[in-house]
Amino acid sequence: MKPLQCFLCLLLPALAGCVPVPSPGVEGDPLRGKIALTQYACQSCHMIPAVPGSKVYVGRPLSDLSKRKVLAGTLENNQANLVRWIRDPQAINPHSAMPNMGVSERDAIDMSAYLLML
């Protein structure tokens, strides 16, 4: 690909508003987070906007996560708590059906950035 074509491939989606931008105060890379959600197979249990997968009803849909007041029934909905929940759900609720998937800190931050911008 020629340098000008590469530049246009990067620039045009940004101009069209296709590149997700995290909310103010939210850290991480939402595009990377979307990929990480797929890599950890989160769509196996959750319906996640723009993440392909079956229509499943094991876990709650994640389309409105940013609008919820609490996470896991007890935690204030903020990025730090979402990262904690993604990384070790049993530490917050030992009876949770959500498994500990061994998500890294960086992946959890990026995943939370994607989920909180929905």
Rank of each mutant, 00 (worst) to 15 (best):
Y57A: 15
Q79A: 04
A97L: 12
S66G: 11
E105Y: 09
V56H: 03
G102P: 03
Q79D: 09
V56I: 13
P99M: 02
S96R: 08
L62V: 03
H95V: 09
R84V: 02
L71C: 04
L71R: 09
N93C: 00
L82R: 04
L82F: 01
G53A: 05
K67F: 08
N77Y: 06
L65S: 06
I92M: 05
A91C: 07
L65I: 12
G102D: 02
R60F: 06
R68G: 09
M101Q: 11
H95P: 00
P89Q: 07
P99N: 02
Q79W: 07
R60P: 10
V103S: 09
L62D: 03
P99K: 01
V83S: 08
G53K: 12
V83Y: 11
S54Y: 08
Q90V: 07
N81Y: 07
H95C: 00
H95E: 15
N81P: 08
I86N: 04
S104P: 12
D88G: 11
P61N: 14
I92L: 06
T74W: 02
V56G: 02
L75S: 05
N93T: 04
D64K: 15
N77D: 12
N100L: 03
Q90G: 00
A97H: 10
M98R: 11
K55L: 11
S104Q: 10
V58S: 03
Q79V: 01
R87V: 01
H95F: 13
A80Y: 06
P89F: 01
N100I: 01
G73N: 08
V103G: 08
S54P: 11
G102C: 01
K67S: 13
